[in-house]
């Protein structure tokens, strides 16, 4: 098993119990599978369609957006990621 820490940004900040979600998953869990795990750990709020928000979001590390098929196999046993909802800077 590996530990995966996912930082929450934007609209996700109001759907967790803190600034990140920490969970355990089998080594080799894909980004797509992680998204499904996050759906179970986040709490929908009135006016927020959690399923649609997750579908429109991407998972990233500190350097890049990860492909849906990317398998999580951190050598340290712990992955630090982020979930990025649709952006609106400026």
């Amino acid at each position: 098993m590996i530990r995966i820490r996912v930082k929450l940004f934007g609209a996700f900040r109001q759907l967790g119990t803190g600034p990140e979600v920490s969970l355990e998953a089998p080594r080799g869990t894909t980004v797509s599978e992680l998204r499904a795990l996050l759906a179970q750990r986040l709490t929908a709020r009135p006016g927020v369609d959690l399923a649609a928000l997750l579908q429109d979001s991407v998972i990233a590390d500190n350097a890049r957006i990860l492909a849906e098929t990317h398998a999580l196999e951190p050598s340290s046993g712990e992955a630090e990621l982020a979930i990025l909802p649709p952006v609106c800077g400026g």
Partner: peptide, 21 residues
């Protein structure tokens, strides 16, 4: 990867939807 939450005069707040990455 930037997001904005608007705070309204009536006390409500809302994260603004934008462009999916």
């Amino acid at each position: 990867p930037v997001w904005k939450q608007e705070h309204y005069v009536d006390g409500d707040s809302e994260w603004i939807r934008g462009h999916s990455l």
